[in-house]
Amino acid sequence: MIINHPLLGPRDSQEFVYLGDASLIDRPNAMAETALDDFHDYLYLRDNPAGSHKELWFHEQGDRSWLVVTRDVTTHEITDVELASDYAKRRGRDR
């Protein structure tokens, strides 16, 4: 697979480390009443869809940036790549 890095252009997926579902960006609020349940779901449960999947890849052997890659997991086709920081800010995080 080739990942089209937003800053560096097309890179071999071998240069990256895979973390998993991009929902890991949405870390729950530890102070909430429901924190115990929220963290269980956050840490252990996954949608695991058969289709388009947003996921976190770390460019370990490159510029060490985190990317959010949108990939069809039934074909390995990548349709979108963006910096995880841009994605996170759009979702209301400060970084």
């Binding site: 998993g20 449960l45 949608d47 695991n48 058969a50 997991v73």
Partner: peptide
Amino acid sequence: SSRVMAMAGLRLPIES
């Protein structure tokens, strides 16, 4: 597993 159990509204501690 995840696809079938999702039909019952369940999310699993599983990735394919």
